[in-house]
Every structure is written in structure tokens, then in C-alpha cells.
């Protein structure tokens, strides 16, 4: 696919009035996170990375976004969202059980670990989760659809779009303080915003 915003890099604005000190500190810290698990085991981590690749497939020829790391750190800090479905276990337990059950389901359906399946098989399996059509007993007390939609899609989508590279891909302006925007009407663009390619 042709890039929609060729040459656009949110990080190029880091030392401009678009970024205040707090934004620099927060984004610098995020980009410096070591792309390794602190909470999950190595097996869980590989499984999570494979899952992220199917939920938010990354465009080729673009820098890779370390999606899984934000989820691992969220688990490490046990930082919930402030609400939890009564039918769902707490954050850490939900992720641990969900990853385990995903792999059990993969073995049951395709006779192999999730990370070893072809992308098409992985997607087929995830479709089954989304429709709650699972066979493994490992989903008990969690629910495949609840985990898939309420935990996996929620946390993975949110983590992907927390990284500046994702903002480059969709043309979002990124940090904007103290300088915000001036041109707000249809088809108007400030010089510090992304230019959309006309060849998409």
C-alpha cells in the first residue's frame, strides 16, 4: 500500500512549540521502554506479540511498534481501567488465563501452539473467539468473546495508537501544547501537520 502521509514524522516536532516538557518526558519514556517482558513469562510474551501482530498488523517498510510492551507494563503495575465486568476476573488473571486458553484452543483446533500457526490459521482462530465458538475448557470463568473484545482488542488497540509511529500512519498531529492549531476549516492544514498524499 502506498503511504498516505509520506515523510511525515510526529517526532520531528519534539523540539518545537508543539511539545511541552511533560509531553517530551512521557513520550521519551515510552520510546525507551525495553521491548521485553517484565511481568509475562517468555512463552506468554511470544504469544502476546503474535496476537498483537494479528489484531494490529503493521505495515511493511515502517518502523515496528512495540505494542506488547505497554500491555506487559500495564500488567506489571496492575493498572486497571477503573471498572471491571462482574463476569470477568481482575486484569492480570484475565490476561494470563486468556493467553493460556488461546493457546489451548490453538492446539485443540490446529494441533499446534498459536505462535506456530500460519497467519491465516491464527485469524481463523480469532474469528472463533470473537463469535464465542470455542471448545477448550480453559475459557471457563473468563469467556472467549469477553476476553477477546473486552481485554485483547481493548488493550492492544489502545497500545498501538499510543506510539508516535502509529500517528504518522494515520496523519494525527500528536502532541500539541503549548502550540495548538490555527487552521480548522475544511481542507485547511497548519504547516506542522501531515500532508496527505493524493495518490492513495
Amino acid at each position: 500500500m502506498t503511504e498516505r502521509f509520506p515523510g511525515y514524522d510526529v517526532l520531528a516536532k519534539r523540539d518545537t512549540p508543539s511539545w511541552n516538557d511533560a509531553s517530551r518526558r512521557v513520550i521519551d519514556h515510552r520510546l525507551a521502554l525495553e521491548d521485553e517482558p517484565r511481568f509475562l513469562t517468555q512463552d506468554e510474551w511470544r504469544l502476546l506479540v503474535a496476537l498483537c501482530d494479528r489484531i494490529v498488523p503493521q505495515p511493511p517498510h515502517r518502523p515496528r511498534i512495540p505494542v506488547a510492551v505497554l500491555i506487559d507494563r500495564k500488567l506489571q503495575q496492575d493498572q486497571g481501567d477503573g471498572y471491571r465486568q462482574a463476569s470477568m476476573p481482575p486484569l492480570r488473571q484475565a490476561w494470563r488465563q486468556g493467553l493460556h486458553a488461546l493457546n489451548e484452543e490453538a492446539r485443540l483446533r490446529f494441533g499446534g501452539n498459536f505462535v506456530e500457526l500460519a497467519p491465516g490459521q491464527q485469524d481463523a482462530l480469532l474469528e472463533l473467539l470473537a463469535r464465542d465458538q470455542v471448545r477448550s475448557e480453559a475459557w471457563q470463568g473468563l469467556g472467549a468473546k469477553s476476553f477477546f473484545k473486552g481485554r485483547a482488542l481493548h488493550d492492544i488497540g489502545s497500545s498501538y495508537y499510543a506510539f508516535p509511529e502509529s500517528w504518522n500512519q494515520i496523519g494525527f498531529g500528536g502532541p500539541a501544547s503549548p502550540r495548538g492549531y490555527v487552521r480548522m476549516d475544511f481542507n485547511r492544514r497548519d504547516p506542522w501537520e501531515a500532508v496527505e498524499s493524493k495518490h492513495v
Binding site: 511541552n20 509531553s23 512521557v26 505497554l70 481501567d81 477503573g82 499510543a162 502532541p175
Partner: peptide, 17 residues
């Protein structure tokens, strides 16, 4: 910060069922 994730800190994040 100009950052959605960081600013989750403004929301009530203690557990509720």
C-alpha cells in the same frame, strides 16, 4: 502531557464492578 495514555491519570481508575 499532550498524550491520551498519560492523561488516563485524570480518570477514576480504582476498581469498580
Amino acid at each position: 502531557a499532550s498524550d491520551e495514555h498519560e492523561q488516563f491519570k485524570l480518570y477514576w481508575r480504582d476498581e469498580r464492578i
